[in-house]
Amino acid sequence: MHKKTWWGAIRPYVMVGPAMAGIILFVIYPIVYLIYLSFYKYNLMNKAKSKFIGLDNYRGIFARDDFYKALGNTAVYTVSVVFFTVLLSLLVAVWIHKNKRINSLVQIGLFTPHIISIVSIALVWMWLMEPNVGYLNYVLHLFGIPPSQWLQSSKTAMMSIVIVSVWHSIGYYALILVAAIKGVPSEVLEAASIDGAKRLRTISHIIIPLISPQLFFILIIMTIGSFKVFDSVRIMTGGGPNNATNTLVYYIFGYRATNIGYASATGVVLMAIIGLLTILYFQVLSKRVHYQ
């Protein structure tokens, strides 16, 4: 009996043990290690030669133009992707939320890109955006619009990546909002239409406030997700042309082998930015969120 109660007391810890070990080993400890590395000039070949250099890596970051370029690009990317994705997902969700067969077909089609690897998505769009024989320029040609260089010009490369990202993510967010709108009591929407409320007014005054918890949620995950953009940049442009699409994670990736301390410090900065944005969202927006 005594043995049994002893086992009963430690059993929960044994059961959550492996999960906690995984998190500590692969999330918590790496964060501590990342911060530690950021104070060092790390020598990959000979660890003993690594040198503590205090805040030098951070000073380096904030003194370099290419960092600000990457930060600015990431900000432009994030703002554009979040703005267009939220706007379009909301409109689409309002359009297709009713239970109809055609609507569930739209949902299935819309969602398909989301489950496909970004590698495939990026390659297909590179092919569509090929400047000489690509399909998009053919469509422009049909409408009598001059061809675009898309990913191959520093003027249009960022826009092209944003288009692909918005196209890729609308399905997921629209679906979350469809579920949210379905949660709005139908009497409320009926009452609004009986009162003769215009479509746009219904959206802005009734639907948006009622689904604000979900909107708040997707704003946060979309912002964090956009700030860590990497895959599409790496495959479609390699940060170019002329650094026009170099983003923070791509920047860190570029230094991961040559200057580990510097890359780590940039990682800490990225983590701080994401953390601050999340706190800011909670401070500014959470008061406006209506929980029913």
Partner: peptide
Amino acid sequence: ILFGIVLLAFMIPGQITFIPVYLM
């Protein structure tokens, strides 16, 4: 507390931890 740590871990992306994990 332990469950809180699990939820926190959910928020940290691999794009931040990859360098130390690789070294380890």
